[in-house]
Amino acid sequence: MLRDIDARELIPQREPILMTQTLYEASGNDARTGFVISQDNMFLEDGHLSEMGVIENMAQSAAATAGINTYINGEKPVLGYIGEIKKCIFHRLPEAGETLTAEVHYISEAAGVVLYNISSHTENGPCAECRMKVFLEK
């Protein structure tokens, strides 16, 4: 089992749109990531992370999960794009200072597209859930 990997080792996104920080642990094709929402985050609106910020956190968490094998092989992170978002429900938009945790669950993959179920929460409760396809550039 892998633990506490810097997300920058897994995905090519950087500031100001690096929206996940640490892959806490990975097991099989699933993983859990963490992200402390800073006061100067580009997706903050009236002190809350916007829906777009919440989605981007889930997307980068999924891309980081998909990037584990590349990391293990000692290769540079590949570009991953959102292919599709489905059944995305927002429960609560977190505030700056909270730690956003994303749980990424692998479902299937075909033709370079990986399908995940993802949910996110902070210490103050659930934030969002969705089914997402991530397209990986090979």
Partner: peptide, 21 residues
């Protein structure tokens, strides 16, 4: 736009979430 500093360095691609926004 500032977002292209990080998406991706030297390789600007418009983030899907920005287009949703």
């Amino acid at each position: 736009c500032d977002v292209y500093r990080g998406h991706f360095p030297g390789h600007p691609i418009s983030p899907g979430v920005c287009n949703i926004g």
